[in-house]
């Protein structure tokens, strides 16, 4: 409950922030929403030398549709902004479904999507959503800027692809080309619980035929898992019952769950399968 000592800087511009990160490299940890970092610091699971608080950097709180149709989410866009967003609308159903399921309402007031991706908790929900949507992260440093696909951004449990001195300033979601169908299903025992299993599904159809499919899994591996085989069988299909079943089977196969107090390996696999089926073939839920 009492963090160890650290130094603290709250830069007032992006340049200032990048300069600090360039100067301090590995010693520095970026503080955005802080809803994962501060708990870890409080419990002394993390003891950074320097916290670079970017909350005073102007112009990072946005989420907007660019002229190209790409959805851009700034590093200080809070979960709550997405929960009550007018921008996501019907075009981004997977994101709209996931936003209210992140942590709890108070945490959503401060936590950020970009921060959640950087934190790379295997039980984090946003990484699955972004994997399903083929999202990207924009990283900038004093040296320049690069765009990293989320598939390459998360490199391991609690590890990301940022280099020392780099700051993730934005997440991007490509524009949907067809009719989007998307859900995020999360098995949690109560609000604020980590997902026992989470399944993000984002499919686009054109004249009833799937043109793009994204499926990603939460809580069933060392990281969020993009179920590429399960995605592949959907493309070109009309979302018929047999294809959905096959996709669900492949998604369950892609999962690498571990038995723990949240459930057995077999159970989690089974829920992945069930959730993929439900997400693709929505029907009235049996139990609310």
């Amino acid at each position: 409950m009492y963090p160890a000592r650290f130094r603290y800087e709250a830069p007032r511009s992006l340049d200032e922030a990048l300069a600090l990160l360039a100067e301090h490299g590995d010693e520095a940890k970026v503080l955005a929403g802080g809803q994962s970092l501060i708990p870890m610091v409080k419990l002394r699971f993390a003891s950074p030398e320097l916290l670079v608080d970017i909350n005073n950097v102007p112009g990072l709180g946005y989420h907007r549709e660019a002229a190209s149709g790409v959805l851009e989410i700034g590093a200080l866009c809070r979960h709550v902004d997405l929960e009550f967003s007018d921008v996501l609308g019907d075009l981004r159903p997977t994101m709209a479904a996931a936003a209210p399921l992140i942590a709890d309402p108070i945490v959503r007031n401060r936590g950020t999507l970009v921060g959640s991706l950087c934190h790379a908790d295997p039980q984090g929900d946003w990484a699955s959503v972004m994997l399903a949507l083929d999202g990207e992260v924009v990283a900038v440093s004093a040296a320049g800027r690069r765009v990293i696909p989320v598939t390459e951004f998360v490199t391991g449990p609690f590890q990301n692809a940022l280099r020392p001195g780099e700051l993730a300033v934005e997440a991007r979601v490509p524009v949907p080309r067809g009719v989007p169908l998307g859900r995020y299903l999360k098995l949690e025992r109560r609000v604020g619980d980590f997902a026992t299993v989470g399944v993000a599904v984002a499919v686009e159809t054109s004249d009833g035929t799937v043109t793009r499919a994204g499926i990603a899994l939460t809580g069933v591996g060392a990281n969020n898992i993009k179920a590429v085989d399960a995605e592949r069988v959907l493309v070109g299909s009309t979302l018929d019952r047999a294809t959905i079943a096959e996709s669900a089977r492949l998604a369950a196969e892609a999962a690498k769950p571990r038995t723990d107090h949240r459930g057995s390996e077999a159970y989690k696999r089974h829920v992945v399968r069930t959730f993929v089926e439900r997400a693709l073939h929505p029907r009235p839920a049996v139990a609310a």
Partner: peptide, 26 residues
Amino acid sequence: DTTSCGACTVLVDGSAVKSCTMLAVQ
């Protein structure tokens, strides 16, 4: 200690925040 209970909830600029999960300097 885990940002779970909300007993410490205050409003910061009108928005509910768990004050155990924000540094005072912030």
